[in-house]
Simulated scan of single mutants.
Amino acid sequence: MPVEEAVRGGLVDAELARRSEMLSVTVADGDEVPAEMAVRAAGEAFRMAAGGGTAAGCHAEDVRLVLHAALFHQGNELWSAAGYVQRRTIGNTCPAIEVRQVSNGGMAALDLAWRYLATSPDAGAALITTADRFCLPGFDRWRSDPGTVYADGGTALVVSTRGGFARLLGLAVVSGPDLEGMHRAGPAHGVGVRVTTRPVDLGAHKAAFVAEIGMARTVNRVTEGQREALRTALDLAGTKLTEIDWFVLPHFGRRRLQSNYLRHLDIGLDRTTWSWNRTVGHLGAGDPIASVDHLVRSGAVIPGQRCLLMAVGAGFTWSCAIIEIDRRLHRAG
């Protein structure tokens, strides 16, 4: 959906839209549950893996772990979206686990898969999926979190011990539980309270948290956590920031992206996927996977280049990963 259309339809205030500098957002049709979007993404990921993405090829029957990450409601209560993805994709009996790390879910799942495969080299492969659908009455994609436009969509990634189109050189996940109160009602460091109002209003929660804790203290803590994740990932990868060719950042609006990332990294938009991100929107846990896929499919990234993936999730958690592109990825058939 074009942002201009949303403004004309009264879905978003014109000034809020202007500040975000977003052009459009992906909006799901019909009543499709998010997990089905993940299933379709997984099918494409397996086709890509079998069609030249790995030296030996990777197939659904090689998967020994399924991790499904999501931010919002998956369509049914007391239901395993991870089990649904498993049944609809590989149909085996390996562990299928849902990862709830909010917008950091995709990277958290990658960290878990990486560690699982490192200790179980015979496991072969892990399937990571993400999917979300942000809709009323529970969530207002335009207003629930001012500064970020939330998008519908699913992503998938196959992680293998047999090689692939890219190698994971280093990954770090850092937690900051002293900031968890920023995304809920109640005292910042007190007992949480149940909220029944809809839609979600993250802007109000953040404002209340900052009013109690202070803006400077909050900003410094967020910056500190992000820097720790970045420093740790670079050290694990044996890489310097100056050796990074592409920066894969969350699909935030322009102002939030500038203040949270571009300013600290001292980079321009041309080294990010912003020109594409602004036509898609924030895919919840799926931003890093989707952006890497875009870089590979578009041919923007070439073998030998290194990409820095960064993510952040309410809670608070920060993730950074460094990957090196080994080969171009081609479609099966």
Rank of each mutant, 00 (worst) to 15 (best):
V3N: 05
F316A: 12
A311K: 06
G225I: 10
G164A: 05
L16N: 07
M182Q: 15
T223W: 15
E44N: 07
P34G: 00
T93D: 10
T279A: 13
G253N: 09
L295T: 04
V99C: 06
R47F: 00
W142P: 00
S103R: 13
E324N: 03
F134K: 04
F316Y: 13
R256G: 10
G225F: 09
A42L: 05
R167N: 14
V301A: 15
A28W: 05
R115G: 05
A14T: 06
L241W: 07
D245I: 10
G43I: 01
T89R: 05
L179D: 02
R271C: 07
A211R: 14
G164L: 07
Q226H: 14
D111I: 00
F46P: 03
G299E: 07
I302T: 14
P121D: 13
G10T: 08
Q74I: 13
V296N: 02
R254S: 11
A109K: 06
A81N: 14
P121G: 11
S103A: 13
A70D: 00
N260M: 08
F46N: 03
L65T: 11
I323F: 06
N104H: 12
T196I: 14
E324Q: 13
S319V: 13
R297P: 00
R141Q: 04
N220T: 14
D245P: 01
Y84C: 03
K240N: 12
A108G: 12
R143K: 12
V102N: 11
A35W: 14
Q258N: 11
G9M: 09
F139N: 07
F316D: 07
S291C: 13
G333W: 12
R278F: 10
E324R: 13
A131V: 06
V193H: 08
T26S: 11
Q101T: 14
I302R: 15
Y261F: 15
A109W: 02
M22K: 03
A14W: 01
P303V: 11
E98M: 10
L136P: 10
D270W: 06
F139H: 13
G9R: 14
G284W: 03
R162K: 08
A229G: 04
L295M: 03
A233D: 04
F316N: 07
I213T: 15
L168E: 03
A332F: 13
G253M: 07
W274F: 10
A285V: 03
A290C: 09
G30A: 14
V280F: 03
H68F: 02
N76I: 00
W318F: 12
L329Y: 05
T273P: 02
